[in-house]
């Protein structure tokens, strides 16, 4: 249902490194899960609109007004690495 190459591609897209053991285990498990999902194919849903938000809700719009909620220092408090008030990361290759 899903092969090792696909699992590798997906893990790259999701920025996850998998060990050889994990690759094998996930390939097996994901395959089993996808087999189960196949049952949806039995349903003809061509004329059914997808349901995205399950409850009828009114669309809220925000008025264009500036409001400060937190300070710069609060916002950077959790930064794993910083230079002054900028977040710091290794260079993009």
């Amino acid at each position: 249902m899903i092969d090792a190459k696909t699992v590798e591609d997906i893990s790259k897209l999701a920025r996850l490194t998998l060990s050889t053991e994990e690759k094998k285990r996930f390939t097996d498990q994901l395959s089993q899960i996808l087999i189960h999902f196949k049952e949806l194919d039995k349903l003809n849903t061509d004329s059914v609109e997808p349901l995205l938000t399950p409850t009828p809700l009114e669309s809220p719009l925000r008025i264009d007004v500036v409001e400060r909620k937190t300070t710069v220092s609060e916002n950077l408090e959790n930064a794993p690495d910083r230079t002054g008030n900028a977040f710091r990361v290794p260079p993009v290759v």
């Binding site: 264009d64 500036v66 937190t70």
Partner: peptide, 22 residues
């Protein structure tokens, strides 16, 4: 005046991360 999805200011040229919020 404010951003698309939050009330931070859109003013150009602020100090680093001055116009940010969670």
């Amino acid at each position: 005046k404010s951003k698309l999805f939050c009330s931070c200011s859109t003013e150009f040229g602020g100090a680093d991360n001055e116009n940010t919020c969670p």
